[in-house]
Design a protein around this nucleic acid. Structure first.
Lengths: 231, 231
DNA sequence: ATGAATTTTTGTACGCGTACGAAAAATAGC
DNA sequence: GCTATTTTTCGTACGCGTACAAAAATTCAT
């Protein structure tokens, strides 16, 4: 007959909580109060433990965030129906990754991973690499092409998210001594010399709204187009 | 006749040091000991003051790093000779920015600025936008095109720099309890299902060396090519 | 000269991530 | 049973960025 409570076989002191529990609690905190409120101390109390106990389940806070990103990808990445044409397949796969990541901009701090290597994202990577190969690229060039797509995608998300954060911070500090000190960009754009920088001077007023537009897909298509005209 | 020591005209208590002094000292610290050693406390003692005094010259550490990036750009960005052909001009300008930034990877933390809007970088932006316009894009599309180039460039630098940092960290922790725990990527690539992910499985062994290659220019050319086939 | 106003500096304090070492709780061999 | 071994937990401590308020140093109005 089976033992009622499976006899432990591991050696040392039994853990009071699991890595999964940590990640789940962290996710709840982030969902409820935002990533800023996720501190090791609070996480510890919410799992009913002490800060340093966490470090036996997680190397450090960065790894925790990485696990959180993983978790997020596994939950929200849904495989879309892919078009038959490989070029469009690449676009759709990349856009799906982009959409999932852009939805949770707190990820930025981790997003700078050298690759989105969450297991659940691999299928998308496969689609992109495969699409590139089917379009005639060698497997090596296809990997490089995928990297280019990833650089572009990660860059877009990071840059936009950071810009948004900075804007929020600046709004917070509305009434203090720095309020009159213009933003970096505003200052620089204020005194453009139309002789030396004619294009920028002419378009200066429209710069902000233009850069606010979401042109991820346009750039992605351009990049993929460029990758496919084999060189 | 001019007064020997120009009489102060500002109202309050005279500052004991200037913002420029702060930035210069910060640059020295970073040059000598690396960006990790740049702390507000150390910076304060090295300018002969206290930590909180810095905050009257600089909004916070992030702004300090931004100023540092500015400073770096102003010092190292040299305007290259530009080819006559606008397409090549775009490439050369973007590559120059990329080179200057990639040279000091500590910038990563700030690089996520929504734009490299250092005054000294504007000339390069102008060249890129102008090149795109000369190739037939509308000014609006040209700005979007520049943004795409910036996303790609910033993404490349951030991703590569973060990967390098992670690698260094992992090497530091060589002998500790986590040593046997494989890297994220290694773990994921270890059990690739060749049926579901055939391309990745076939190329798994070459993934690391392939992604280590510097293909920034290839991707940049592809992106610019794609931007120029007007759509 | 004197007090008000303004700007910069300084001191104190908080919460953060986490290094380090000791304590606790389990198993394995005798 | 007893002790050694192994794994996890916990307490303490450090340096970090920086919020906040008081103090100091200057000019201006009287």
């Amino acid at each position: 007959m089976p033992q009622p409570s499976a006899p432990r076989k591991t050696r040392g002191r039994p853990p009071r909580f699991s890595r999964e529990e940590v990640v789940a609690t962290a996710r709840r905190i982030v969902d409820e109060d935002g990533v800023d409120r996720l501190t090791m101390r609070r996480l510890a109390t919410e799992v009913g433990s002490t800060p340093m106990a966490l470090y036996h389940h997680v190397r450090n806070k960065e790894e925790l965030l990485l696990l959180l990103l993983d978790d997020h990808a596994a939950r929200t990445l849904r495989r879309p129906e892919l078009p038959a044409h490989p070029r469009e397949r690449i676009i759709v796969a990349a856009a799906a990754i982009h959409e999932a990541l852009a939805a949770c901009p707190w990820i930025v701090e981790v997003l700078t991973a050298d690759d989105l290597m969450s297991a659940s994202a691999l299928w998308f990577v496969e689609q992109i690499v495969d699409g590139l190969v089917e379009c005639g690229l060698t497997p090596e060039r296809a990997v490089h092409g995928y990297r280019a797509v990833w650089y572009y995608t990660a860059g877009e998300i990071v840059v936009r998210a950071t810009a948004a954060r900075r804007r929020a911070d600046a709004d917070d500090a509305d009434a203090d001594a720095y309020a009159d000190r213009a933003t970096y960009r505003e200052r620089v754009f204020a005194d453009l010399d139309p002789d030396e920088l004619p294009r920028l001077a002419r378009i200066a007023d429209d710069w902000a709204p233009l850069t606010a537009e979401d042109t991820y897909l346009d750039g992605l298509r351009a990049l993929v187009d460029g990758l496919l005209v084999s060189r």
